[in-house]
Computed example of a mutant assay.
Amino acid sequence: MNPSRRPLIAGNWKMFHGGRKGVELAQECATFAGGLPGVDIVVAPPFTALAAVASVLEGSPVGLAAQNVYPKDEGAFTGEISPPMLKECGCSWVIVGHSERREHFGERNTFVAEKVAATLQAGLLPIVCVGESLAQRQANETLLIVKQQVDAFLDILAQSKAAVAIAYEPVWAIGTGKVAGPAEAEEVHAAIRTWLSTRDEGLAARTRILYGGSVKPDNAAALLACPNVDGALVGGASLDAGSFSAIARAAAK
């Protein structure tokens, strides 16, 4: 990690803990986060738990993120949630373009870019996800695919002065127990930083690039030691306060 950028550890709860369990987990996160002043910690519960978790986290150092957003402020879009709704609910972050949204719901790069723009317009910070599939990695297309994904929203980020985050999440490593090694992760993170720098030096300097893909307490330290890895987007391990806090402590070191 670069000491000029505070590490960011974000927990994506996915479709778990949408009620009382989410409130209890948020309380545990608020407790341990108080002892880690050098790390930014964010949790992303399901929509059903956002308001309750926001209440629990009020006054704590833990930020609140939504797992998804629809790129319109209001309208006849049954079942969707707008950026202003999320902000009013207490969110400051939104996960955008997660690989599961791309894979299971057909979200294309252009739609992800629309979400990034709408999120920033509402005064929220996106954690924009990019990453390649196993077949693409085996075909040596990792950087090609990731660059296409980044290029879709690069100009939008450059036009904003917000300190956003990009999460590199190799699709083949999400929830599989597989993980990109530190060298593999750093290669992609460094490439993303270079693309940002080519567009705008300030953008490259302020953007935190997170690694996401089966991050656990036993591999977090090695990944977070990479120069261009500024934190982690944590999936399954964020559902356990002990594991999540261990990852956050690794970032603090």
Results as ranks from 00 to 15, higher is better:
residue 4 S to K: 11
residue 4 S to A: 12
residue 5 R to Y: 11
residue 5 R to L: 07
residue 12 N to G: 05
residue 13 W to L: 08
residue 15 M to P: 09
residue 17 H to V: 12
residue 18 G to P: 04
residue 19 G to F: 15
residue 20 R to M: 10
residue 21 K to W: 10
residue 22 G to D: 03
residue 24 E to S: 13
residue 26 A to F: 12
residue 26 A to S: 10
residue 29 C to Q: 11
residue 31 T to S: 13
residue 35 G to M: 06
residue 37 P to I: 10
residue 43 V to I: 15
residue 44 A to K: 12
residue 48 T to Y: 12
residue 48 T to H: 13
residue 49 A to R: 01
residue 53 V to A: 08
residue 55 S to T: 14
residue 58 E to V: 12
residue 63 G to S: 13
residue 68 N to Q: 12
residue 70 Y to T: 05
residue 70 Y to P: 06
residue 73 D to R: 15
residue 77 F to S: 06
residue 81 I to H: 09
residue 81 I to E: 02
residue 83 P to I: 09
residue 84 P to V: 08
residue 84 P to I: 07
residue 84 P to N: 06
residue 86 L to M: 07
residue 88 E to P: 00
residue 88 E to R: 10
residue 94 V to A: 02
residue 98 H to Y: 12
residue 100 E to I: 01
residue 103 E to K: 11
residue 104 H to R: 15
residue 104 H to N: 11
residue 105 F to G: 02
residue 105 F to Y: 15
residue 109 N to Q: 09
residue 109 N to E: 06
residue 112 V to S: 00
residue 112 V to W: 01
residue 116 V to P: 07
residue 116 V to M: 02
residue 116 V to A: 01
residue 116 V to E: 01
residue 119 T to I: 05
residue 120 L to P: 00
residue 122 A to F: 09
residue 130 V to F: 08
residue 131 G to E: 02
residue 134 L to H: 15
residue 134 L to D: 08
residue 135 A to M: 03
residue 136 Q to G: 14
residue 141 E to Q: 12
residue 150 V to T: 06
residue 150 V to W: 04
residue 151 D to Q: 15
residue 152 A to C: 01
residue 153 F to D: 03
residue 158 A to L: 10
residue 159 Q to L: 07
residue 165 A to T: 11
residue 165 A to D: 03
residue 166 I to Y: 03
residue 167 A to Y: 14
residue 168 Y to E: 04
residue 170 P to S: 09
residue 174 I to R: 05
residue 180 A to R: 06
residue 181 G to P: 11
residue 183 A to F: 15
residue 185 A to Q: 07
residue 187 E to T: 13
residue 187 E to F: 08
residue 191 A to R: 04
residue 191 A to D: 01
residue 192 I to T: 00
residue 198 T to D: 10
residue 199 R to H: 03
residue 199 R to A: 00
residue 201 E to C: 02
residue 203 L to I: 07
residue 207 T to W: 01
residue 208 R to N: 03
residue 211 Y to W: 14
residue 211 Y to S: 02
residue 216 K to I: 02
residue 217 P to M: 08
residue 218 D to R: 12
residue 219 N to F: 13
residue 220 A to Q: 11
residue 222 A to D: 08
residue 222 A to L: 06
residue 224 L to F: 15
residue 225 A to M: 08
residue 227 P to E: 01
residue 228 N to G: 00
residue 231 G to F: 01
residue 231 G to K: 03
residue 232 A to F: 09
residue 235 G to F: 05
residue 236 G to S: 03
residue 237 A to M: 04
residue 239 L to F: 13
residue 241 A to K: 11
residue 244 F to R: 00
residue 249 R to A: 11
residue 251 A to W: 09
residue 252 A to M: 02
residue 253 K to N: 15
